[in-house]
Nucleic acid binder design. Sequence first.
DNA 1: ACCTGAACACCGTTCAAGT
DNA 2: ACCTGAACACCGTTCAAGT
Lengths: 241, 241
Amino acid sequence: MFVTLGAMTARREPTSRRDRPAKPALSRQWIVAAALGIMREEGLEKVTMRRLAQELDTGPASLYVYVANTAALHAAVLDALLGDVDLSGDDDGGDGGDWREQLRAVLRSYTLVLFAYPQLARSALVARPSGENYLRLVERVLVLLSRGGAGREQAAWGVDTLLQNATATAAEQATRESDPAATDEWNATVHTLGAASEATHPAISAHMPALVAGSPEERFRWGFDVLVNGILATPAPAVAE
Amino acid sequence: MFVTLGAMTARREPTSRRDRPAKPALSRQWIVAAALGIMREEGLEKVTMRRLAQELDTGPASLYVYVANTAALHAAVLDALLGDVDLSGDDDGGDGGDWREQLRAVLRSYTLVLFAYPQLARSALVARPSGENYLRLVERVLVLLSRGGAGREQAAWGVDTLLQNATATAAEQATRESDPAATDEWNATVHTLGAASEATHPAISAHMPALVAGSPEERFRWGFDVLVNGILATPAPAVAE
DNA sequence: ACCTGAACACCGTTCAAGT
DNA sequence: ACCTGAACACCGTTCAAGT
Protein backbone atom coordinates (compact mmCIF):
# COMPACT_ATOMS: atom_id res chain seq x y z
CA MET A 1 0.00 0.00 0.00
CA PHE A 2 2.89 2.28 0.73
CA VAL A 3 3.89 1.69 -2.86
CA THR A 4 0.51 2.87 -4.07
CA LEU A 5 0.79 6.02 -2.01
CA GLY A 6 4.26 6.64 -3.39
CA ALA A 7 3.07 6.13 -6.95
CA MET A 8 0.29 8.65 -6.49
CA THR A 9 2.83 11.31 -5.69
CA ALA A 10 4.23 11.12 -9.17
CA ARG A 11 0.87 11.12 -10.96
CA ARG A 12 1.01 14.57 -12.52
CA GLU A 13 -0.24 14.38 -16.05
CA PRO A 14 1.54 17.13 -17.93
CA THR A 15 -0.82 19.33 -19.93
CA SER A 16 0.65 21.01 -22.97
CA ARG A 17 0.31 24.73 -22.84
CA ARG A 18 0.62 25.17 -26.59
CA ASP A 19 -2.57 23.50 -27.89
CA ARG A 20 -4.82 26.22 -26.55
CA PRO A 21 -6.69 28.86 -28.56
CA ALA A 22 -5.09 32.27 -28.31
CA LYS A 23 -7.76 33.92 -26.21
CA PRO A 24 -10.57 31.84 -24.73
CA ALA A 25 -13.28 33.88 -23.04
CA LEU A 26 -12.63 34.43 -19.35
CA SER A 27 -14.90 32.57 -16.92
CA ARG A 28 -14.59 31.23 -13.45
CA GLN A 29 -14.56 27.70 -14.74
CA TRP A 30 -11.83 28.39 -17.24
CA ILE A 31 -9.77 30.22 -14.68
CA VAL A 32 -9.92 27.32 -12.26
CA ALA A 33 -9.01 24.90 -15.04
CA ALA A 34 -5.97 26.98 -15.93
CA ALA A 35 -5.01 27.15 -12.28
CA LEU A 36 -5.22 23.36 -12.01
CA GLY A 37 -2.95 23.08 -15.03
CA ILE A 38 -0.35 25.36 -13.52
CA MET A 39 -0.47 23.44 -10.26
CA ARG A 40 0.04 20.12 -12.03
CA GLU A 41 2.99 21.40 -13.98
CA GLU A 42 4.69 23.79 -11.61
CA GLY A 43 3.23 23.32 -8.16
CA LEU A 44 0.80 25.29 -6.04
CA GLU A 45 3.27 28.05 -5.23
CA LYS A 46 3.16 29.09 -8.86
CA VAL A 47 -0.62 29.40 -8.82
CA THR A 48 -0.55 33.15 -8.29
CA MET A 49 -2.85 35.80 -9.70
CA ARG A 50 -0.07 37.19 -11.85
CA ARG A 51 1.15 33.85 -13.16
CA LEU A 52 -2.41 32.80 -13.88
CA ALA A 53 -3.21 36.05 -15.68
CA GLN A 54 -0.13 35.54 -17.83
CA GLU A 55 -1.35 32.03 -18.65
CA LEU A 56 -4.71 33.47 -19.69
CA ASP A 57 -3.19 36.31 -21.69
CA THR A 58 -4.63 39.05 -19.57
CA GLY A 59 -3.74 41.26 -16.62
CA PRO A 60 -4.11 40.18 -12.99
CA ALA A 61 -6.85 42.74 -12.37
CA SER A 62 -9.17 40.90 -14.75
CA LEU A 63 -9.25 37.83 -12.57
CA TYR A 64 -10.79 39.68 -9.65
CA VAL A 65 -14.12 39.71 -11.47
CA TYR A 66 -14.33 35.95 -10.95
CA VAL A 67 -12.15 35.19 -7.92
CA ALA A 68 -12.19 37.22 -4.73
CA ASN A 69 -8.53 36.68 -3.86
CA THR A 70 -5.68 34.19 -3.92
CA ALA A 71 -7.05 32.14 -1.03
CA ALA A 72 -10.37 31.71 -2.82
CA LEU A 73 -8.48 30.64 -5.92
CA HIS A 74 -6.66 27.92 -4.03
CA ALA A 75 -9.90 26.81 -2.39
CA ALA A 76 -11.53 26.50 -5.80
CA VAL A 77 -8.63 24.42 -7.09
CA LEU A 78 -8.92 22.13 -4.08
CA ASP A 79 -12.64 21.68 -4.55
CA ALA A 80 -12.16 20.85 -8.21
CA LEU A 81 -9.69 18.17 -7.21
CA LEU A 82 -12.08 16.73 -4.63
CA GLY A 83 -14.20 15.65 -7.58
CA ASP A 84 -11.73 12.77 -7.92
CA VAL A 85 -12.53 11.36 -4.50
CA ASP A 86 -14.28 8.00 -4.72
CA LEU A 87 -17.30 8.19 -2.44
CA SER A 88 -18.67 4.74 -3.18
CA GLY A 89 -16.37 3.10 -0.67
CA ASP A 90 -16.72 -0.18 -2.51
CA ASP A 91 -20.35 -0.17 -1.57
CA ASP A 92 -21.71 -3.63 -2.15
CA GLY A 93 -25.11 -2.54 -3.24
CA GLY A 94 -27.26 -1.46 -0.37
CA ASP A 95 -27.54 -4.23 2.19
CA GLY A 96 -26.00 -1.93 4.75
CA GLY A 97 -22.57 -3.36 4.10
CA ASP A 98 -19.61 -2.75 6.36
CA TRP A 99 -19.86 0.96 7.10
CA ARG A 100 -16.45 1.01 8.73
CA GLU A 101 -14.67 -0.39 5.70
CA GLN A 102 -16.61 1.93 3.43
CA LEU A 103 -15.76 4.94 5.54
CA ARG A 104 -12.13 3.92 5.60
CA ALA A 105 -12.15 3.59 1.82
CA VAL A 106 -13.68 7.03 1.34
CA LEU A 107 -11.13 8.66 3.61
CA ARG A 108 -8.32 6.73 2.00
CA SER A 109 -9.44 7.95 -1.40
CA TYR A 110 -9.53 11.50 -0.06
CA THR A 111 -6.02 11.09 1.33
CA LEU A 112 -4.73 9.66 -1.93
CA VAL A 113 -6.08 12.60 -3.90
CA LEU A 114 -4.33 15.01 -1.56
CA PHE A 115 -1.17 12.88 -1.69
CA ALA A 116 -0.78 13.84 -5.32
CA TYR A 117 -0.63 17.50 -4.33
CA PRO A 118 0.97 17.81 -0.92
CA GLN A 119 1.11 21.58 -1.06
CA LEU A 120 -2.62 21.69 -1.58
CA ALA A 121 -3.06 19.42 1.42
CA ARG A 122 -1.05 21.87 3.49
CA SER A 123 -3.26 24.69 2.39
CA ALA A 124 -6.43 22.63 3.00
CA LEU A 125 -5.25 22.22 6.57
CA VAL A 126 -5.52 25.95 7.04
CA ALA A 127 -8.53 26.96 4.93
CA ARG A 128 -11.43 24.55 4.65
CA PRO A 129 -12.98 24.39 1.18
CA SER A 130 -16.69 24.95 0.78
CA GLY A 131 -17.45 23.89 -2.78
CA GLU A 132 -19.84 21.34 -4.16
CA ASN A 133 -17.42 18.42 -4.05
CA TYR A 134 -16.51 19.13 -0.46
CA LEU A 135 -20.21 19.08 0.39
CA ARG A 136 -20.66 15.69 -1.23
CA LEU A 137 -17.75 14.37 0.78
CA VAL A 138 -19.12 15.70 4.07
CA GLU A 139 -22.55 14.29 3.23
CA ARG A 140 -21.12 10.84 2.59
CA VAL A 141 -19.03 10.75 5.76
CA LEU A 142 -22.04 11.84 7.83
CA VAL A 143 -24.14 9.04 6.37
CA LEU A 144 -21.52 6.41 7.07
CA LEU A 145 -20.85 7.61 10.61
CA SER A 146 -24.57 7.58 11.36
CA ARG A 147 -24.85 4.08 9.95
CA GLY A 148 -22.08 3.12 12.36
CA GLY A 149 -24.15 4.27 15.28
CA ALA A 150 -22.81 7.79 15.84
CA GLY A 151 -25.26 10.22 17.38
CA ARG A 152 -26.11 13.51 15.75
CA GLU A 153 -23.44 15.53 17.56
CA GLN A 154 -20.90 12.74 17.34
CA ALA A 155 -21.30 12.52 13.59
CA ALA A 156 -21.29 16.28 13.11
CA TRP A 157 -18.11 16.88 15.04
CA GLY A 158 -16.62 13.61 13.88
CA VAL A 159 -16.58 14.59 10.20
CA ASP A 160 -14.42 17.54 11.02
CA THR A 161 -11.93 15.52 13.01
CA LEU A 162 -11.75 12.70 10.48
CA LEU A 163 -11.15 15.02 7.53
CA GLN A 164 -8.67 17.03 9.52
CA ASN A 165 -6.73 13.89 10.36
CA ALA A 166 -6.71 12.62 6.80
CA THR A 167 -5.60 16.01 5.52
CA ALA A 168 -2.81 16.19 8.06
CA THR A 169 -1.59 12.72 7.13
CA ALA A 170 -1.40 13.74 3.50
CA ALA A 171 0.21 17.08 4.24
CA GLU A 172 2.87 15.64 6.48
CA GLN A 173 3.82 12.37 4.88
CA ALA A 174 3.42 13.36 1.28
CA THR A 175 5.55 16.43 1.45
CA ARG A 176 8.45 14.32 2.56
CA GLU A 177 8.59 12.47 -0.72
CA SER A 178 8.38 15.32 -3.18
CA ASP A 179 9.35 18.68 -1.79
CA PRO A 180 13.09 18.92 -1.11
CA ALA A 181 12.62 21.68 1.47
CA ALA A 182 10.20 19.47 3.41
CA THR A 183 12.71 16.64 3.41
CA ASP A 184 15.22 18.92 5.11
CA GLU A 185 12.55 19.92 7.58
CA TRP A 186 11.80 16.30 8.34
CA ASN A 187 15.47 15.46 8.71
CA ALA A 188 15.80 18.34 11.14
CA THR A 189 12.90 16.98 13.20
CA VAL A 190 14.32 13.46 13.22
CA HIS A 191 17.73 14.81 14.20
CA THR A 192 16.30 16.96 16.98
CA LEU A 193 14.32 14.06 18.42
CA GLY A 194 17.23 11.67 18.03
CA ALA A 195 19.62 14.08 19.70
CA ALA A 196 17.38 14.44 22.76
CA SER A 197 19.57 12.93 25.39
CA GLU A 198 18.45 10.21 27.71
CA ALA A 199 19.31 12.47 30.63
CA THR A 200 17.26 15.50 29.67
CA HIS A 201 14.41 13.90 27.73
CA PRO A 202 14.12 10.29 28.89
CA ALA A 203 10.64 9.68 27.50
CA ILE A 204 11.55 10.92 24.03
CA SER A 205 14.61 8.76 24.17
CA ALA A 206 12.58 5.74 25.24
CA HIS A 207 9.99 6.25 22.51
CA MET A 208 12.51 7.13 19.90
CA PRO A 209 12.24 4.55 17.19
CA ALA A 210 8.45 4.71 17.34
CA LEU A 211 8.22 8.50 17.25
CA VAL A 212 9.40 8.70 13.69
CA ALA A 213 8.36 5.25 12.49
CA GLY A 214 5.39 4.12 10.49
CA SER A 215 4.54 4.20 6.82
CA PRO A 216 1.89 6.64 5.67
CA GLU A 217 -0.46 3.68 5.32
CA GLU A 218 0.13 2.50 8.88
CA ARG A 219 -0.24 5.98 10.28
CA PHE A 220 -3.41 6.56 8.29
CA ARG A 221 -4.99 3.30 9.34
CA TRP A 222 -4.17 3.72 13.01
CA GLY A 223 -5.31 7.33 13.04
CA PHE A 224 -8.58 6.32 11.41
CA ASP A 225 -9.25 3.56 13.93
CA VAL A 226 -8.34 5.82 16.85
CA LEU A 227 -10.82 8.41 15.70
CA VAL A 228 -13.67 6.09 14.84
CA ASN A 229 -13.28 4.19 18.10
CA GLY A 230 -13.03 7.44 20.03
CA ILE A 231 -15.94 9.13 18.28
CA LEU A 232 -18.32 6.27 18.95
CA ALA A 233 -17.18 5.88 22.55
CA THR A 234 -17.27 9.54 23.53
CA PRO A 235 -20.59 11.29 24.14
CA ALA A 236 -20.82 14.86 22.83
CA PRO A 237 -22.82 17.59 24.56
CA ALA A 238 -26.29 17.90 23.03
CA VAL A 239 -26.87 20.83 20.70
CA ALA A 240 -30.22 22.59 20.81
CA GLU A 241 -32.26 22.04 17.65
CA MET B 1 -14.27 28.96 29.92
CA PHE B 2 -15.19 30.39 26.57
CA VAL B 3 -14.69 33.77 28.21
CA THR B 4 -11.17 32.83 29.21
CA LEU B 5 -10.38 31.77 25.69
CA GLY B 6 -11.77 35.00 24.35
CA ALA B 7 -9.76 37.03 26.81
CA MET B 8 -6.54 35.30 25.75
CA THR B 9 -7.06 36.48 22.23
CA ALA B 10 -6.63 40.07 23.30
CA ARG B 11 -3.53 39.51 25.44
CA ARG B 12 -0.95 41.22 23.27
CA GLU B 13 1.34 43.27 25.45
CA PRO B 14 2.51 46.16 23.31
CA THR B 15 6.28 46.62 23.36
CA SER B 16 7.51 50.11 22.75
CA ARG B 17 9.85 50.29 19.84
CA ARG B 18 11.44 53.52 20.97
CA ASP B 19 13.24 52.48 24.16
CA ARG B 20 15.86 50.43 22.36
CA PRO B 21 19.52 51.24 21.83
CA ALA B 22 20.25 52.40 18.32
CA LYS B 23 22.15 49.35 17.15
CA PRO B 24 22.26 46.27 19.38
CA ALA B 25 24.60 43.57 18.15
CA LEU B 26 22.92 41.07 15.86
CA SER B 27 22.40 37.58 17.26
CA ARG B 28 19.92 34.81 16.73
CA GLN B 29 18.37 35.43 20.10
CA TRP B 30 17.97 39.13 19.48
CA ILE B 31 16.52 38.51 16.05
CA VAL B 32 13.88 36.13 17.42
CA ALA B 33 13.02 38.62 20.18
CA ALA B 34 12.51 41.35 17.61
CA ALA B 35 10.39 39.01 15.52
CA LEU B 36 8.20 38.23 18.53
CA GLY B 37 7.75 41.94 19.10
CA ILE B 38 6.64 42.53 15.55
CA MET B 39 4.22 39.63 15.75
CA ARG B 40 2.68 40.93 18.97
CA GLU B 41 2.22 44.39 17.55
CA GLU B 42 1.43 43.78 13.91
CA GLY B 43 0.71 40.09 13.40
CA LEU B 44 2.63 37.20 11.91
CA GLU B 45 2.20 38.34 8.34
CA LYS B 46 4.42 41.32 9.10
CA VAL B 47 7.20 39.10 10.39
CA THR B 48 9.13 39.16 7.14
CA MET B 49 12.86 39.27 6.55
CA ARG B 50 12.63 42.79 5.21
CA ARG B 51 10.40 44.15 7.95
CA LEU B 52 12.58 42.50 10.59
CA ALA B 53 15.77 43.87 9.07
CA GLN B 54 14.24 47.33 9.11
CA GLU B 55 13.40 46.86 12.79
CA LEU B 56 17.00 45.90 13.48
CA ASP B 57 18.46 48.72 11.44
CA THR B 58 20.16 46.51 8.90
CA GLY B 59 19.59 44.94 5.51
CA PRO B 60 17.67 41.70 4.98
CA ALA B 61 20.80 39.90 3.80
CA SER B 62 22.36 40.23 7.25
CA LEU B 63 19.69 38.03 8.83
CA TYR B 64 20.61 35.04 6.72
CA VAL B 65 23.70 34.55 8.87
CA TYR B 66 21.43 33.54 11.76
CA VAL B 67 18.21 32.31 10.18
CA ALA B 68 18.07 29.97 7.20
CA ASN B 69 14.85 31.38 5.74
CA THR B 70 11.45 32.79 6.58
CA ALA B 71 9.98 29.42 7.57
CA ALA B 72 12.79 28.85 10.06
CA LEU B 73 12.16 32.31 11.46
CA HIS B 74 8.50 31.55 12.06
CA ALA B 75 9.40 28.21 13.63
CA ALA B 76 11.79 29.95 16.01
CA VAL B 77 9.11 32.43 17.00
CA LEU B 78 6.70 29.58 17.69
CA ASP B 79 9.19 27.71 19.80
CA ALA B 80 9.92 30.83 21.82
CA LEU B 81 6.21 31.17 22.50
CA LEU B 82 5.94 27.52 23.57
CA GLY B 83 8.02 28.53 26.58
CA ASP B 84 4.77 29.91 27.99
CA VAL B 85 3.03 26.54 28.00
CA ASP B 86 2.38 25.29 31.53
CA LEU B 87 3.61 21.72 31.67
CA SER B 88 2.84 21.10 35.32
CA GLY B 89 -0.79 20.26 34.56
CA ASP B 90 -1.68 21.16 38.16
CA ASP B 91 0.46 18.29 39.27
CA ASP B 92 -0.40 17.60 42.85
CA GLY B 93 3.04 16.61 43.93
CA GLY B 94 3.95 13.18 42.71
CA ASP B 95 1.45 10.62 43.96
CA GLY B 96 0.67 9.71 40.39
CA GLY B 97 -2.30 12.06 40.38
CA ASP B 98 -4.92 12.03 37.69
CA TRP B 99 -2.88 11.73 34.52
CA ARG B 100 -5.89 12.44 32.34
CA GLU B 101 -6.68 15.75 34.00
CA GLN B 102 -3.01 16.69 33.93
CA LEU B 103 -2.73 15.86 30.25
CA ARG B 104 -5.87 17.80 29.53
CA ALA B 105 -4.45 20.81 31.40
CA VAL B 106 -1.17 20.68 29.48
CA LEU B 107 -2.94 20.55 26.15
CA ARG B 108 -5.34 23.24 27.20
CA SER B 109 -2.41 25.47 28.14
CA TYR B 110 -0.82 24.76 24.75
CA THR B 111 -4.08 25.65 23.01
CA LEU B 112 -4.45 28.86 25.00
CA VAL B 113 -0.96 29.99 24.06
CA LEU B 114 -1.74 29.42 20.40
CA PHE B 115 -5.09 31.13 20.83
CA ALA B 116 -3.29 34.38 21.46
CA TYR B 117 -1.65 34.09 18.04
CA PRO B 118 -4.02 32.33 15.66
CA GLN B 119 -1.86 32.98 12.64
CA LEU B 120 1.01 31.21 14.33
CA ALA B 121 -1.28 28.28 15.06
CA ARG B 122 -2.11 28.08 11.38
CA SER B 123 1.54 28.00 10.50
CA ALA B 124 2.26 25.42 13.23
CA LEU B 125 -0.31 23.21 11.54
CA VAL B 126 1.87 23.09 8.48
CA ALA B 127 5.43 23.14 9.81
CA ARG B 128 6.15 21.41 13.10
CA PRO B 129 8.60 23.25 15.33
CA SER B 130 11.68 21.45 16.61
CA GLY B 131 13.07 23.73 19.29
CA GLU B 132 13.82 23.14 22.93
CA ASN B 133 10.39 24.14 24.21
CA TYR B 134 8.65 21.88 21.72
CA LEU B 135 10.83 19.03 22.96
CA ARG B 136 9.84 19.66 26.56
CA LEU B 137 6.20 19.60 25.55
CA VAL B 138 6.52 16.33 23.66
CA GLU B 139 8.43 14.82 26.58
CA ARG B 140 5.69 15.78 29.02
CA VAL B 141 2.87 14.45 26.86
CA LEU B 142 4.70 11.16 26.39
CA VAL B 143 5.13 10.75 30.14
CA LEU B 144 1.48 11.42 30.85
CA LEU B 145 0.23 9.12 28.10
CA SER B 146 2.47 6.34 29.37
CA ARG B 147 1.20 6.88 32.89
CA GLY B 148 -2.30 6.47 31.49
CA GLY B 149 -1.39 3.04 30.17
CA ALA B 150 -0.51 3.80 26.55
CA GLY B 151 1.97 1.41 25.00
CA ARG B 152 5.16 2.62 23.40
CA GLU B 153 3.74 2.96 19.90
CA GLN B 154 0.43 4.29 21.13
CA ALA B 155 2.16 7.04 23.09
CA ALA B 156 4.57 7.89 20.27
CA TRP B 157 1.88 8.26 17.64
CA GLY B 158 -0.55 9.67 20.13
CA VAL B 159 1.55 12.78 20.88
CA ASP B 160 1.42 13.72 17.26
CA THR B 161 -2.33 13.36 16.99
CA LEU B 162 -3.04 15.15 20.24
CA LEU B 163 -0.83 18.12 19.39
CA GLN B 164 -2.24 18.22 15.88
CA ASN B 165 -5.76 18.32 17.22
CA ALA B 166 -5.02 21.04 19.76
CA THR B 167 -3.26 23.11 17.11
CA ALA B 168 -6.16 22.72 14.71
CA THR B 169 -8.64 23.79 17.38
CA ALA B 170 -6.64 26.93 18.04
CA ALA B 171 -6.12 27.68 14.38
CA GLU B 172 -9.74 27.25 13.45
CA GLN B 173 -11.64 28.72 16.36
CA ALA B 174 -9.25 31.48 17.27
CA THR B 175 -9.00 32.95 13.82
CA ARG B 176 -12.71 33.51 13.82
CA GLU B 177 -12.51 36.01 16.65
CA SER B 178 -9.67 38.18 15.50
CA ASP B 179 -8.96 38.02 11.80
CA PRO B 180 -11.73 39.70 9.78
CA ALA B 181 -10.87 37.70 6.66
CA ALA B 182 -11.30 34.47 8.61
CA THR B 183 -14.69 35.60 9.82
CA ASP B 184 -15.81 35.98 6.23
CA GLU B 185 -14.41 32.55 5.48
CA TRP B 186 -16.36 31.08 8.38
CA ASN B 187 -19.54 32.83 7.35
CA ALA B 188 -19.10 31.41 3.88
CA THR B 189 -18.75 27.90 5.30
CA VAL B 190 -21.81 28.30 7.50
CA HIS B 191 -23.77 29.67 4.60
CA THR B 192 -22.70 26.86 2.29
CA LEU B 193 -23.64 24.21 4.83
CA GLY B 194 -26.89 25.92 5.69
CA ALA B 195 -27.82 26.28 2.04
CA ALA B 196 -27.34 22.56 1.40
CA SER B 197 -30.85 21.56 0.58
CA GLU B 198 -32.65 18.72 2.23
CA ALA B 199 -33.15 17.16 -1.18
CA THR B 200 -29.54 17.05 -2.35
CA HIS B 201 -27.70 16.76 0.97
CA PRO B 202 -30.11 15.26 3.48
CA ALA B 203 -27.47 14.25 6.03
CA ILE B 204 -25.92 17.71 6.13
CA SER B 205 -29.38 19.14 6.52
CA ALA B 206 -30.19 16.73 9.32
CA HIS B 207 -26.96 17.47 11.17
CA MET B 208 -27.08 21.15 10.53
CA PRO B 209 -27.27 22.85 13.86
CA ALA B 210 -24.61 20.54 15.26
CA LEU B 211 -22.19 20.91 12.34
CA VAL B 212 -21.37 24.50 13.20
CA ALA B 213 -22.17 24.45 16.91
CA GLY B 214 -19.92 24.17 19.93
CA SER B 215 -17.75 26.63 21.77
CA PRO B 216 -13.98 26.28 21.41
CA GLU B 217 -13.94 24.85 24.92
CA GLU B 218 -16.56 22.21 24.12
CA ARG B 219 -14.85 21.25 20.89
CA PHE B 220 -11.48 21.06 22.59
CA ARG B 221 -12.75 18.93 25.44
CA TRP B 222 -14.62 16.52 23.20
CA GLY B 223 -11.71 16.23 20.78
CA PHE B 224 -9.36 15.51 23.65
CA ASP B 225 -11.57 12.78 25.05
CA VAL B 226 -12.12 11.23 21.63
CA LEU B 227 -8.40 11.01 21.09
CA VAL B 228 -7.41 9.77 24.51
CA ASN B 229 -10.17 7.16 24.47
CA GLY B 230 -9.25 6.14 20.96
CA ILE B 231 -5.51 6.04 21.56
CA LEU B 232 -5.84 3.76 24.58
CA ALA B 233 -8.35 1.50 22.87
CA THR B 234 -6.56 1.09 19.55
CA PRO B 235 -3.49 -1.13 19.30
CA ALA B 236 -0.70 0.18 17.08
CA PRO B 237 1.57 -2.06 14.99
CA ALA B 238 4.79 -2.84 16.86
CA VAL B 239 7.90 -0.98 15.73
CA ALA B 240 11.22 -2.82 15.70
CA GLU B 241 13.64 -1.54 18.37
C1' DA C 1 -20.81 44.22 -16.66
C1' DC C 2 -16.50 43.23 -17.88
C1' DC C 3 -11.78 44.17 -18.90
C1' DT C 4 -7.39 46.70 -18.80
C1' DG C 5 -2.87 49.40 -17.87
C1' DA C 6 -0.57 51.21 -14.62
C1' DA C 7 0.62 51.94 -10.24
C1' DC C 8 1.35 51.18 -5.08
C1' DA C 9 3.38 48.76 -1.74
C1' DC C 10 5.41 45.18 -0.79
C1' DC C 11 8.02 40.14 -0.86
C1' DG C 12 12.50 36.25 -0.46
C1' DT C 13 16.93 35.38 -1.57
C1' DT C 14 21.58 35.78 -3.61
C1' DC C 15 26.01 37.61 -4.38
C1' DA C 16 30.07 40.34 -4.89
C1' DA C 17 32.32 43.41 -2.16
C1' DG C 18 33.81 45.05 2.01
C1' DT C 19 35.44 44.83 7.18
C1' DA D 1 33.18 35.32 10.21
C1' DC D 2 30.13 38.71 9.75
C1' DC D 3 27.81 42.44 7.47
C1' DT D 4 26.20 45.23 3.58
C1' DG D 5 24.24 47.45 -0.86
C1' DA D 6 22.33 46.41 -4.65
C1' DA D 7 20.10 43.67 -7.60
C1' DC D 8 16.98 39.88 -9.48
C1' DA D 9 12.78 38.07 -9.81
C1' DC D 10 8.87 38.07 -8.22
C1' DC D 11 4.12 39.05 -5.21
C1' DG D 12 -1.45 40.87 -4.13
C1' DT D 13 -4.55 44.26 -4.82
C1' DT D 14 -6.69 48.64 -6.23
C1' DC D 15 -8.40 52.06 -9.24
C1' DA D 16 -9.44 55.17 -12.91
C1' DA D 17 -10.35 54.65 -17.46
C1' DG D 18 -12.11 52.36 -21.18
C1' DT D 19 -15.52 49.12 -23.91
